[in-house]
Amino acid sequence: MILWRAIVLAALVATAPALLAGEIPPDARRSGYFFMGPDTRAMQDDDTSNPGMLFVLDGEALWAKKAGSADKACADCHGDARSSMKGVAARYPAYDKALARPVTLDQRINLCRANHQQAAPLPYESHDILALSAFVAHQSRGVAIAAGDDPQAKPFVEQGRNLFMQREGQLNLACTNCHDDNFEKRLAGSPITQGQPTGYPLYRLEWQTLGSLERRLRSCMTGVRARAYDYGAPELVALELYLMARARGMPMETPAVRP
């Protein structure tokens, strides 16, 4: 009996990375969708009323449009995104061997622009980068998130997890204080969710536009009166990677709608 228990325990420890106190067990994870009212859900569910779909359509046009001095379109290398891009966003941020660090989908798009199209990078949060990443990530809608599996990405997942647990800012709060410990509660009347990254880039009614996961994380940092990391900063990428690894197996929703 005792032996049997010891074996079960050992097996548990060996398979799942132990959850830290407060971390959400896999079967208790919920997308932000779950916390929204019926109107916002309906808006996300119906492609004809989901404002994010306009960006997806723009992204589809950009996919086929030649750019840069190489005069090549994304489609010239990748063909039909419906097959070539299916499941790709669910694995991002992904480890880049040449750079020896993880890169976000936005950064990958700009690497393609630099290396294969000889085109200038699209600025973070610009319409075109959001449209392209929404189009690419939309090809993964419904696909289970699988980021952070690459052994070389592990140290960066760990870095992101440490950042998630770290208190910061004048209010001295960590991501985990709200998104692991208090997701059933309300902050000044609005629901706190688990902070799952399943729907990005997504349309936020508060923003009146599509925005990236980095934009969201920066506003949480500003909310606790911390100095937000710059777009593309290694710390922000590590946090994104941890969030995606934490959401492992949850289906992608891009483009989601949030209040």
Partner: peptide, 24 residues
């Protein structure tokens, strides 16, 4: 506790520029 310390300005991490070295 998650309740901030309202009269403290040290021992904090990455405090935003407008808030640095000031109590809440």
């Amino acid at each position: 506790t998650i309740m901030p310390s309202y009269y403290r300005a040290d021992g904090l991490v990455r405090v935003g520029r407008n808030f640095a070295d000031k109590p809440i």
